[in-house]
Structures are given as structure tokens and as C-alpha cells.
Design a protein around this nucleic acid. Structure first.
Lengths: 233, 233
DNA sequence: CGATTAGTTGATACGTTTCAAAAAGTGTGG
DNA sequence: CCACACTTTTTGAAACGTATCAACTAATCG
């Protein structure tokens, strides 16, 4: 891992907050005194490889990260897009079962798994927070079964856009799409062409409007939600 | 919930073991002194409903359980088949996001979430066990993304059969399929007809042999694994 | 600004679904 | 224990949605 070399100005981040989504009330509750290492990665750079020891958990400060796996024949599946403020790297106990790459230039904070474990054992609130986080991730994963197993291309794309908005990607009714069509396709179990076609159809039907291919304006959120067909993602 | 009425001989199960798969070494490590309630359900009976408070975690003693969700238009997705010895009901923190039904006549033990939490807070090993279990479930869920998003019908069915064998459903090379073709289909994101066709093809190619439609003999495990294409499920 | 990559659109192919009917399996009451 | 009714599974034919391949266009980067 060329992690260290990828840290130009490794400011000794003092007492980084460690929010567990789903537990903290606000946006950045300082839930513990864990120190993290701030790291930078350029667009496309590998953050960790599949099979490497999963000894760190990462929090995205800015930018977007994808975690993926490749099948022998080249098919790819993206397990997660981690947006600013979100965590990634919780693949498994021992070794990473996916690899992580920077979708855009990113800044992340890496927390040592050992520190987290120690903290969780020390403080009751930490343990609860940690457990809630794991359960929330599990719930999100289960929801995705339905998306991938039982929904059409149009439903998947609509749900995906709404999910990004809900997670804060883009202001007001403008969605930012930092990732490529291929990334979206590999996240939704489709092809890039199909994603493109669905987006074009949504434009034609005046549900969204393209403002460059990485920025969409949502024109009719209600119709989009109807297309996503509730309880999804 | 007609849970209580469904308990004919509610033996006051004394000090039930509470194994967390992935943590205990053997098959039934008594990891804690948690008391559970033994319950019986007839084939097809509902064990808990979607939306109900998720205040219990269940362990299957015998039989098979499915956890599902229904979409408004009738499409169904099965999130999990819980076999003998496995846990289910860990949908979420607050309320069940899936409903659970008995695939066959089942005996389960219900553990109170409160008891589990208390135990986890009391004993260090319990906390670790609990965490490992949650992470293992998460890893399994992530693997299923690939199955549902990037694999063909034949690959999914092959992987499903191998998974059942590995989890102990059926002795030697004979797989037991307690669930219907519709159940399998809704677990794999297919239709029952497609599942049936894939199984027929596998028979024709001498990878498996049908012994009644709920018992299959695996004739060529290697070829089946090749069809499942490694790292799946 | 030109070269290269990413995105869109179209035509066709393929895999899975859908609808329909036959066959096999399962349960029940005489 | 068998016959009947019902359900589940299997098989076939046609329709549908998405993938694939190919060409073109737009965006991005040096």
C-alpha cells in the first residue's frame, strides 16, 4: 500500500471525531477520542486492495469512494459508494473482501481497528454506537437485495438518484453525480448504456434535467419517488 | 402475534445456549446463560410480521425459516433462509423490516433482545461474539449483491445449491430442498419457471440427479462449483 | 486545441419472464 | 389404501427487458 506516500501534508489530526451514522443525533458528534490519520488520494487511486488485512476503518472527509469486487471474467460489482461524512472499510473481520478506490480526489481519515476495539471496550456508548452502525449497514444491505433482485432498470436508477440526494450529494434539487455511468451501472447491476438510456428517458419525461452529465436537476421529485416505488434502497 | 398460542408444550428451556455463528469453534458452544423460549410453528405460519417491534432474536432448532418482504405490486424478495442452528430476526434495531414465515414445521428458540444486550454488556466475550456475528452477516449480504447483480440464472442456482450443502442441508451428496421453487426464485431474484429450467438442465448435463423434487443428488460437485464460478454467495 | 475518454443513441441478440398447459407430487376423506 | 382434488413443478411458445456491439457525440485533460 502506498498509503503513506499519498499523504502530502499529514497534519497530525488532533482528536478526530468518530461519528457512527444512525447513532449520533447531529452531523458530527464527537463520539470518542480516537486519533485518525488524514490521507489524500487522487481520482482513481486505490485506497486498499482486496485481500489486504482489514485493520483500518475509513471516514470520508471530502470526495467519493467506491468499494468493488471483480469477477474472474471482468464483471464488476460496486458494493458501496461512501460519500463525505460516511464510513467504509467495514467489509469483514479479517481481510478486505472488496477493494476501495477514489471516485474523485478524496480526503479520508483512517482509524485503526485496534483503537476502535479498545474504545468500544472502554466506553458503553461507543459499543452501542458501533453496534447500531453495523446493524444499519446490514439493513441497508438487505434493502439492496430487493433493488437488485426484483426491480427494473428504471426503478433502480430512480431509487439511486433519490438515495444520493437524501445522503446530501448536491444542494437543493440538483444532484451531483461524481461517478461515471459505468460506476452507477456496476452499483445497480446494469450496464452503462442502460443507465444512460434510463436517464435520457427521465429527461424526456421531464422528471429530471441534465446540466452536464454529472449534474442533474430534479424537476418532479414526486414522480421520481413513484418510479422508485417507495421502500427501496 | 399468535406466538403464544403456537406453543403446545412450552418446555421452560433451561439455560439455552446462544451460539453466534462465526465465533464459536464447534457447533453449539454455550456462549452465555441466556434463557430462551422454545416455540413451534406449523408450515406456512407467520413467525413475526413486518413492522413489528424487533425485540426478539430467534434461533432455529429444526426446520427452515424464510424472511421476506413484499412489494406493493406483489413481487416478493426473500432475504434469508435460516436453517437449523442458524439465527434470524436481526433485521434492524427498532422494527422488523421483513416478515418471517415457517418454510417447514419449525421449532425455534426466541431470545429477548434485552437479555442479549444485557449479556453483551456484561461479558466481553459476548460482545465480541455479537460483533463478529453482525460482521459475518454483513459480509454474507455483500456477497449476495454480486450474486443478484452480476450473475446468470445458472450461476445463481448452482451457488445456491452449494451454499445449502455447505450449511448442512442434506447428508453426503444429497441436498434437501425444503423450500418451493417460488421460494428459491424469490431468494435468487428469478422466477420459479427459470429455477425449474436450470435444475432440469443441470440434470440433463449429469451435474445433479432429482430424487423427488425436494431432494437432489450432486453427481459432479466440481462442475457445479465451476458453474457457480467461485467466490459467490 | 487536438487527443482521448466518457456518454449517448441505434440495431440486434440473448436471457429471462410471462402466459399457458401438461405432468408430477401432496394431502385428504372415504 | 386408494381415489380424488388441489398444489407444485415442469415444459413449451411467445413477449419483453436488458445486454451487446457499433457508431457517433460530448466532455475532459494535457
Amino acid at each position: 500500500m502506498q498509503l503513506v506516500s499519498a499523504v502530502p501534508h499529514a497534519t497530525p489530526t488532533p482528536a478526530i471525531s468518530f461519528p457512527m451514522p444512525g447513532f449520533e443525533g447531529g452531523a458530527g458528534l464527537a463520539a470518542g477520542p480516537i486519533q485518525g490519520r488524514r490521507m489524500h488520494f487522487a481520482r482513481g487511486a486505490e485506497i486498499y486492495a482486496e485481500g489486504k488485512a482489514a485493520d483500518q476503518l475509513y471516514k470520508v472527509v471530502s470526495g467519493t469512494v467506491r468499494t468493488c469486487r471483480l469477477l474472474p471474467d471482468g464483471r464488476r460489482m460496486i458494493a458501496q459508494f461512501a460519500l463525505a461524512g460516511e464510513l467504509f472499510g467495514l467489509d469483514s473481520v479479517g481481510h478486505h473482501r472488496f477493494f476501495a478506490e477514489a471516485v474523485t480526489d478524496v480526503v479520508v481519515i483512517a482509524f485503526s481497528r485496534r483503537d476502535i476495539n479498545a474504545w468500544v471496550e472502554r466506553e458503553r456508548a461507543a459499543a452501542q454506537s458501533w453496534q447500531s452502525y453495523a446493524l444499519e449497514r446490514l439493513a441497508a444491505a438487505q434493502d439492496r437485495f430487493i433493488l437488485l433482485g426484483r426491480r427494473t432498470a428504471a426503478e433502480r436508477v430512480a431509487a439511486f438518484l433519490l438515495d444520493l440526494v437524501d445522503r446530501g450529494l448536491g444542494a437543493h434539487d440538483v444532484v451531483e453525480l461524481p461517478m461515471s455511468r459505468y460506476d452507477i451501472a456496476d452499483y445497480l447491476g446494469l450496464t452503462a448504456e442502460t443507465v444512460s438510456r434510463v436517464l435520457s428517458t427521465l429527461c424526456k419525461n421531464r422528471l429530471i434535467a441534465k446540466q452536464g452529465c454529472h449534474h442533474l436537476r430534479i424537476l418532479d421529485r414526486e414522480a421520481l419517488e413513484e418510479q422508485a416505488d417507495e421502500d427501496a434502497l
